Simulated scan of single mutants.
Amino acid sequence: MTNDYRFEFRSYQRRFLRSLTTNHGKWDIREGIILRLTDESGKVGWGEIAPISWFGSETLEQALDFCRQLPREITDEIIFSIPDELPACQFGFESACEMGSGEWGVGSGGDNFITPKSSLFLYSALLPAGEAALNQWKTLWQQGYRTFKWKIGVNAIADELEIFELLIHTLPASTKLRLDANGGLSYEEANLWLRTCDNLKANPELPLEIEFIEQPLPVEKFQQMLELSTSYETAIALDESVATLRQLADCHQQGWQGIFVIKPGIVGSPSRLRKFCHQYQIDAVFSSVFETAIARLAALQLAAELSQNNRAIGFGIDHFFEQEDTWLQTLWNDL
């Protein structure tokens, strides 16, 4: 039986409290689309399209063009035939369907989305690039975070290695640290980082655990990352290389047995992601795309279902935005 929905949407902009700096550059404003589906019985499902075009999804304009060309009344058939070139749209519309159907045990009221962090998860907090990390971790530690991700490949490698040396001897003993290069290292730099981490792992006096280096090389250097993953003890996680379901399946087929960082907000169809993860039992870390609470609820639902190895999920990003409770409620009321 095909369901019919009344479809409404609105775009949004949220300014970061501080610029997010990665190898891809500086990011000051998060833009996206909030959508609402109302079925014939009046049940409401909320969804969010939060593309990151430089990471591998469609652009915001492509997503807006898609929403604008849709009729006010849409069906399941339309939703489940969204093309793979629009992965953030696939996620937003499918998750709205799931929410409206009650599959998550969530009602149609807006304030259901503003939920505290689930005790089912460990959260990884994102540290700012450069020296700012040396102080920022303290506040986050007091908030309960025990896993941190630090951006590398942003500044000169000699400077970053110096800061890294200070950071690892500053963080408490029970910390897990992830290094995220966003594909910004050369092959020689990646080897240097991996050798440095291996040497630290071999030091029994090192108080913390270096969990993995995330996406050390650009997407097109997959074979070199595959080689590096078997050459060092320090684990490598793919991120940009597996931004979408198509890329995820391709890297798995080519032999990647390491960690996959999955960003639900841009990976594509939730139903197809479930099928893939159940079939192959991959080692996945679920991570934020700096979405609002709407997409975050959908992403956490997937993480709860599909996480295998009790790895901290990368949703410790609240400190990059002002509290969104009032902002979201205003947006919903305007729809």
Score class of each variant (00 low, 15 high):
M1E: 13
T2Y: 07
R6S: 12
F7H: 13
F9W: 15
R10G: 03
Y12F: 15
R14Q: 14
S19N: 14
S19P: 13
T22G: 04
N23Y: 12
G25W: 05
G25P: 04
D28N: 14
E31G: 07
I33W: 08
R36H: 05
L37N: 10
T38Y: 11
D39Q: 12
S41L: 13
G45D: 10
S53I: 02
G56L: 10
C67G: 02
C67P: 01
R68S: 14
D76S: 10
E85V: 11
L86R: 03
P87S: 10
Q90T: 06
F91H: 11
G100V: 03
G100R: 11
E103C: 07
G110V: 06
N112C: 09
I114D: 00
T115A: 14
T115M: 07
P116R: 09
S118I: 07
S119V: 12
S119D: 14
L120F: 10
L120M: 05
F121R: 01
L122P: 00
L127R: 00
P128W: 08
A132P: 01
Q136R: 09
K138G: 01
W141L: 02
Q142G: 05
Q142R: 12
Q142E: 06
G144I: 10
T147E: 12
F148L: 06
K151I: 06
K151F: 09
A158V: 09
E160I: 02
I163P: 02
F164W: 07
L167A: 05
L167K: 03
I168M: 05
I168Q: 11
P172L: 05
P172E: 07
T175G: 04
L179R: 05
G183Q: 03
G184C: 07
Y187P: 02
N191C: 13
L192Y: 08
R195F: 09
R195M: 11
L200S: 01
L200A: 06
K201G: 11
L206P: 05
I210Q: 01
F212N: 01
F212W: 05
I213L: 15
E214I: 01
L217R: 01
V219K: 04
E220R: 14
E220S: 10
K221C: 13
F222P: 03
Q223T: 12
Q224M: 01
T230H: 15
Y232H: 14
I236K: 00
S241I: 04
L245P: 04
D250G: 00
G255Y: 11
I259H: 03
I262L: 12
P264I: 03
G265Y: 06
I266S: 05
V267W: 06
S271N: 13
F276V: 07
C277D: 02
Q279V: 02
Y280G: 04
I282N: 08
I282R: 10
D283Q: 03
V285H: 08
V289K: 13
T292E: 03
A293L: 07
R296V: 03
L297P: 01
A298C: 10
L300S: 07
L300I: 10
A304C: 11
E305I: 10
S307A: 15
Q308L: 08
N309S: 09
N309W: 05
R311A: 02
I313V: 15
G314V: 08
G314N: 05
G316T: 11
I317K: 08
I317R: 09
H319E: 10
F321C: 11
E324M: 09
T326H: 04
W327D: 12
L328M: 13
T330L: 06
T330E: 13
L331V: 08
D334E: 08
